[in-house]
Simulated assay, not measured.
Amino acid sequence: MPETFDRVVIGGGAIGLPSAWQLARRGERVLLLERFAPGHARGASHGATRNMNNAYEEPHYLDLYDEALGLWRELEASSGQRLLTLCGLVTHGDPGPVGRAHAALQRRGAAVELIEAGEAERRWPGMRFDGGVLVNRDAGRVHAAAALRAFASEAVREGAELRYGHRVVSIEQRGDRVAVTAVADSGDELRVEALGAVVAAGAWSRQLLADSIALPPLTVTEEHPAHFSVLPRVVEPGAEKAWPSFNHFLAGAAESRRGNVYGMLTPGEGVKVGFHMTGDVVDPDARPFRASDAARAELRAYVAEWFPGLDPDSAEEISCTYTSTASGRFVLDSAGLVTAGAGFSGHGFKFAPAIGRVLADASLGIASPPEAFRIPAH
């Protein structure tokens, strides 16, 4: 006989865990199934830090950011863990997106200012800047690994059951139930029935949802940011703690492999710098976990040009997957009893608690996801 729950969540990363937390805190009997071990490095959610970045012009992202900020604070209070460091965010480069983000944030009364490059370089001598610099004070970084642990512990405290080492092999809608079959690392088969399922499987979303939801095209790439050591002759010892998170919108990035640039300080590891969405398309089950020599050289050259406070020869490479839609927008939608969250890679982590709320509401039929993130009707 299958085990029965109110809701089953598939995927135990930055989207699945907050979805389980949100469902469990409403009294739902929740089972979360994750293919790998906690904190695994096979997907997009591992690592110590992520940008807490509100340099957006679109209202649907800014609304989600504001909600997420409040929910991060709730999670900090309930878990007793510090999950955010709002050390500021600086965004520079192409004046079009920089100016539009500044205007959108000003209209919302956000804590922002636009300063000249020279002033920014006096404040942060470890960096160089291009054009006007948008400074966001209510932004910075998320302590990502700690956040995953907090989501998991709070979901369990609210009554959710988390089972790792369970690979889901099928999802079927059968009348008023969803039937999920998984295979454990031991080889044992698990069958579960629930009133609804939330699927947040990252790079494995398309194969799991092929029979449930007509997802837009999703591209899985392997990205390779790196941590670089701070040079004490440029940045005084201790001053690196005030290093802001950053975006560099490179003119023409959409037409080149260089892409835009993002990063943040990771205490104890250095400053993380990466090109956004420039990696090779991969099979998530057969990826090299290594950047090409050309990609490594290009990142080194970028750091040498734009970061006088970093040692460009000190790169400690990271490997992660992006799962992206053509527009870069998230997919948050339901079909019958199955609710899907996909296409987050590269800029989803900071929104995680709000996305979990959206997916929980959609699964329970309380509210539909924002129109901007729904799959267009054919």
Rank of each mutant, 00 (worst) to 15 (best):
P217N: 13
V168N: 00
F151A: 09
W204C: 07
V198L: 03
E154H: 03
T221G: 03
P225C: 13
P225H: 12
R149Q: 14
A194N: 09
V156R: 14
S186D: 15
L209S: 01
L209Q: 10
A194P: 01
D185H: 13
A184Y: 01
V192Q: 02
L190I: 04
A144S: 12
V169P: 07
S205V: 04
V156D: 08
A146H: 10
V199S: 05
R191M: 08
G196K: 05
V168G: 02
W204S: 12
R157D: 09
R167E: 15
R149M: 11
A214N: 14
A210M: 01
L209E: 00
R206D: 15
A184H: 09
T221D: 01
A155P: 06
D211G: 06
A145V: 01
G175T: 05
T219K: 08
V220N: 03
Y164D: 11
V156Q: 10
A197H: 00
G187V: 09
T219C: 10
V183M: 08
S153I: 04
S170F: 09
I171F: 01
E172G: 00
R177F: 08
W204E: 05
A201V: 02
V180N: 01
G165C: 11
R177M: 11
D188L: 14
E189F: 12
V169H: 14
Q207H: 03
V156H: 03
A210C: 02
S170T: 14
V199P: 07
L148G: 13
A201G: 10
E172H: 13
R157A: 09
L209F: 05
V192P: 03
A200I: 01
V183W: 01
G175W: 05
E222L: 10
G202L: 02
A203E: 05
V220P: 06
L190Y: 04
L148H: 08
S186T: 15
A155I: 08
G165S: 13
H166I: 00
I171S: 02
S153P: 11
E222N: 10
D185Q: 15
G196H: 08
G165I: 05
V156I: 10
V198Q: 03
E193R: 11
D211W: 04
E189V: 15
Q207A: 12
L209C: 07
G165L: 14
A226E: 02
P216I: 07
E189M: 14
A145G: 14
A203P: 00
A150D: 07
L215I: 09
R177L: 12
L209K: 00
R174G: 07
V198H: 04
A179V: 03
A179D: 10
L218A: 06
A210F: 04
I171E: 01
R206L: 03
A226P: 06
V178D: 00
L215T: 06
A179C: 11
R206E: 14
A144T: 04
V198E: 04
G196P: 00
E223S: 05
D185T: 12
G196E: 08
E158S: 15
S170D: 14
V198C: 04
D188K: 13
T221P: 09
A214M: 02
R177E: 13
T181I: 12
L195M: 11
R177I: 01
R191S: 09
V156K: 11
Q207K: 14
A201I: 12
V180A: 02
V192I: 12
A152T: 00
V183F: 01
A214S: 12
A152W: 04
L215V: 01
L209Y: 07
E189T: 15
I171P: 00
